[in-house]
Design a protein around this nucleic acid. Structure first.
Lengths: 174, 174
DNA sequence: CTGACTGCAAAGCTTTTGCACGCAG
DNA sequence: CTGCGTGCAAAAGCTTTGCAGTCAG
């Protein structure tokens, strides 16, 4: 429904333009990394990307990955994400869904995305009242899965529809 | 108005009880660390505490500090905080003000706290609708200070009153 | 051609851990 | 007394950086 594959190509193209406009070069390695990032909606860390690329037969140094990630964050193509773990996670979904928030499932560790324009408006108004101009909003709700607690299964089948996958899935790209 | 000093003593006492009930011991070092944590509302990292204690003439190992912080987080006496930096920050204000959120001032780096029961309710309802039971809510709004941008000064004098201090202050305990 | 990128390895930071000794309960 | 806590130093992660060679524009 949302974010058809053409959007992905658009985001990648914009990222290329952004890099070039900022004096950076778009190398073969960077193309591969962009592809790995934006071909999925999954949140990831540097090591995930490294593993994914290695699995695809590309030998790209982890240093190269870190360097590109940092540039993409500066250009707002990636948003840093905090799931309470040590690793730096990144969310590739902000270019196409800027106003989304996260539920962190305490049962399976997965992050489920959701949106709510009212929440967005109220937060901005509150911040405005206190003398600030809001830029990025970040919401994380740590929660337990009701069905998981009732029946033991973990069926994140998106009652309202979102891009994320189920609790049962592994958390790493591997 | 809120959180009189008697509350601080209460929180510390509860922390002591919690530790003992969980098979831990309340040593002289731990007393000093608890004091350093709850005698202020400032967000801090392990190194901040270490420096503060050293300034007070106490020679407590950073390892001991990390070990206690981790226990206090488990007991919900401290809440991990993310300001986008590398270091792990902690917020000692949740025991007395459980439902507060943060504005991260992009001009000075300070975290300003604010509360809003409606925001809290709406977030919980949204999460509930999606099949979860919300536990902890975490909101961070990255924002610019309007007065700072208009006049160059940075006067977080709490338009609505909150426990945090001004932009002009140094960010570290030092 | 030139400057930015790459891989590698080393360095840097923060946080955790193993161990021998010490102290709270 | 016993077991958990402590300090120290080493180890462990994750991320960054220096350098010599390579490649995009």
């Amino acid at each position: 429904m949302r974010d058809p594959s053409s959007n992905r190509a658009l985001v990648q193209e914009r990222a290329r333009v952004y890099l070039r406009e900022n004096g950076s070069k778009v190398t073969g390695q960077r193309e591969k990394i962009l592809e790995a990032i934006f071909s999925s909606h999954d949140h990831f860390c540097a090591e995930d990307l490294h593993a994914k690329l290695k699995a695809q037969g590309h030998r790209i140094s982890i240093a190269t990955i870190y360097r590109l990630i940092n540039e993409l964050v500066k250009g707002h193509f990636l948003r840093p994400l905090d799931d309470g773990s040590e690793r730096h996670l990144y969310d590739p979904n902000y270019p196409t869904r800027p106003g989304h928030y996260h539920i962190l499932c305490k049962d399976c560790g997965k992050m489920i995305e959701f949106e709510d324009p009212c929440l967005d408006l109220r937060e901005r108004a509150l911040v405005e009242d206190r003398g600030f101009t809001a830029d990025e909003l970040q919401v994380r709700v740590d929660a337990n899965c009701k069905r998981h607690h009732a029946s033991g299964d973990c069926p994140n089948k998106e009652p309202k529809g979102n891009a994320m996958d189920s609790c049962a899935m592994e958390k790493k790209i591997s």
